[in-house]
Computed example of a mutant assay.
Amino acid sequence: MKMNRGKIALRINKDNFGKVKIPTPNGDIVLEIDTGFEAAHYFTQYSEVVYVPDDEKEIKVGMFVFHNHNVYSESTRVDDDIFWTTKEFIFGTTSQMFGEYVMVDKIFEDKDTAIGTMGINVRIEQIKEPIKNKCLVITGKYAGKTMYCSDVMFYEIVGYDKKIYIAKEKQLIADEDFNPCENKLLVAPFKDELIIRKSGVIVARNFTKPQCKTGNVTRSFNGEYLGQNIAYSRYYQLTIYGIQHHIVEVKNVECTFETNEEVTILK
């Protein structure tokens, strides 16, 4: 087999489609999902690599890798059970992640919930509920740390014998002491926004449709911009103890400014 332009080929075992293994004290129970319900929920995402290009250094033939469900498609079929993909859709193996991906695990907290009929026989019980904005990092440079993360970050893998969760490293925000990850700033957003004039001058004013957000940098990964007011074009939103924070990558800082001061975009 010889494929062009960096393509990687996977052998996808259709026998695993829709199978979910649930561990119990009496052994594993294997459930089969109705595969007519929604394709994204049953296509296997754990498959064998059968071809890599000559310049590929991380992924090897024979590896079993976690991958995006979109690999399985008639448009990517090479043979009956062989499908091509690009590296960006391959997450990693059980021991290492590729590129910008990291393996994470959910963190649970105890939560009181009411059981029974209201007003008659209600009792309060504790249940375990996953925390949406925290995770335990398993692989990568933050391995072993509990980290704040963006709310939408978990990918459940179909076709593997246990649930695993994969995120992109950029979705990791800060450690438990609110120290931001590399190249990130923790920002307290302002209600006032910035007007960007046609001349390229930014003015700090209230208006209805802001072109970018503004705020004060409360934490910095290396001290850069700490304590300064900044305008920024992209951000992740994170709510901690009911308080809203914005997480900004340094590359998305448009400018610094004093309150009500006219300033020019730095980029």
Rank of each mutant, 00 (worst) to 15 (best):
D28F: 10
I29V: 15
V30A: 02
V30I: 14
L31C: 11
E32C: 06
I33Q: 15
D34I: 08
T35E: 10
T35S: 07
G36F: 06
G36P: 11
G36C: 09
G36V: 05
F37K: 09
E38F: 01
A39Q: 08
H41T: 15
F43R: 15
T44P: 08
T44F: 01
T44G: 06
Y46M: 12
Y46L: 09
E48R: 07
V49R: 08
V49D: 08
V49Q: 07
V49F: 03
V52Q: 13
V52K: 08
D54R: 10
D55L: 12
E56R: 01
E56H: 01
K57L: 09
K57A: 12
K57Q: 14
E58C: 07
I59S: 09
I59Q: 10
K60I: 00
K60W: 00
K60P: 00
V61I: 08
V61L: 01
V61S: 00
G62S: 10
G62Y: 12
G62K: 09
G62Q: 12
F64T: 13
V65K: 05
V65S: 04
V65E: 07
V65Q: 09
F66N: 05
H67S: 03
N68Q: 02
H69M: 06
H69R: 05
N70A: 10
N70W: 02
V71H: 07
Y72Q: 04
S73M: 11
S73L: 11
S73C: 13
S73K: 14
S73V: 08
